[in-house]
Design a protein around this nucleic acid. Sequence first.
RNA 1: GGCGUGUUCGUCUAGUGGUCUAGGACAUCGCCUUCUCAGGGCGAAGAUCACGGGUUCGAAUCCCGUACACGCUGCCA
Length: 481
Amino acid sequence: MNEEIRTRIAPSPTGLLHVGTAHTALFNWLFARSKQGKFIMRIEDTDKERSRDEFIDDITDGLIWLGLDWDEGPERGDGYGPYLQSKRFEIYKKYAQELLDNKKAYYCYCTPEELEKERKEQSKNKQAPKYSGRCCNLTESQIAKFKAEGRKPSVRFKVESKQIKFKDLIKGIVEFDTGLFGDFVIMKSDGTPTFMFAGAIDDFLMKISHVIRGEDHLSNTPRQILLDEALNFAIPEYGHLPLILNPDRTKLSKRKNPTSLSEDFIKKGYLPEAMINFLVLMGWSAESGQEFWTLKDLINEFSFDNVGKSPSVFDQKKLDFLNGYYIRKMSIGDLAKIAADFLGKNEMVKDGNKFMVALSLVQERLKNLSEIPEQIEFFFKEPSSYKDIIVPKNGTLEKTKKALVESLKYLEEENDFGRDSLEQLLRAVATKNGFSAGVVLWPIRVALTGKIASPGTFEVLEALGKEESLKRIKKAIEVIK
RNA sequence: GGCGUGUUCGUCUAGUGGUCUAGGACAUCGCCUUCUCAGGGCGAAGAUCACGGGUUCGAAUCCCGUACACGCUGCCA
């Protein structure tokens, strides 16, 4: 019989949702969904100093935005909750007491200063920094003395010296010698648990079957296994994902790269589809070689067999490409909807129809939503200051004037402002005057848009309509007089 | 310092002993489409598979060593 697959994402709310966390969440989610398992959200807010509620919101909102929903978590299902570690302190205390009672852990009265000094000395002597274990066998009188000094003890786990070997889902068999570790702290002197301890307990209590996390946790795994063994917990499967790196190959950091999902990607106009596709391609590839993926398709295709072992450099250019790709693929109605949401109170959104027409002209040129206002502005507002660019390369002021005047003449008489008939008309104007098409089309387009780069002349004429188009062309003739 | 993990085009990657004169994608460059930009189509360039030894008839693929990178070595997570 197969046990239910249960994975989790366990962010600590000490900052905005990081793309690395999103990446880990994605792989956990995919694995759970592909196995009809459960995906759980657990908030690791044991660090009271740095944890903030607003970060919890940022993290959960970001994952929802990506489409990574969870089955259990704060405010959602309470099978094995609570899912906020700050509400589970009694549980950790109980297990710490159990270890204390079994002599598998002991009180440590060392002060941070003493420990720091010890470490410094060790590294000065080229020794591995490792806790000496000096508090393990304190006498009654020594303890009484420390207590009298008002020292608050931490609880340290007594590390048994042995080989720990486990099969990582991604890395394969990994082996550690725990004799090198030194006794580590499981309860801080303020009574709160360390990440190592709380994580091991919660993974067991929440019946997590697979712990999928970043490779930076690989060296923590044997410690957690030791804890599991001491507490008689079942040991979960582990999988350590390759990390995401800055272009200089250091661990992804916000100093060197955009890392906040909300601030750097959502607000900049990236689409969840692009983000998912981009994230999954860092570390995973399909057997088929397919490179475009939606969450839905990934569920059927995902497997740890195709997850790579080496870290990936964050490549913004590729994200941009993917984002443009998904923007282009979207129906104009859907684009208008998400663009309107994105732009919020922007004036240009008010006239829904006009906004949609404008969008349709620039859709294939967009790399992200935030480029929209700049690209469609001409559609709502007469352009200005295009005097320097209205004469095409290799053209002259004289020809440009003539082209505009002649075009205006014919345009005024044209009633069909569809792009096809406009094309016929204007190309005829060009040949009639012995001009190449560009000589007449460029100035009109600039008169209409005020831009060097824009959608094509015929589309713009059509979209703007006869009245507005003629008005702008007349103005251009004035301007270059 | 110790331990762990990793190393294929600039980047993401395919590749599990012969089909690899190493495939795809992004980026770059060129051509075509064209009034511009974008898109699309076609094409080019780009990797002595980190390095050095082995094993083998044969290695990017297996073994050993070295180098480099990253992670852990915290009363942060």
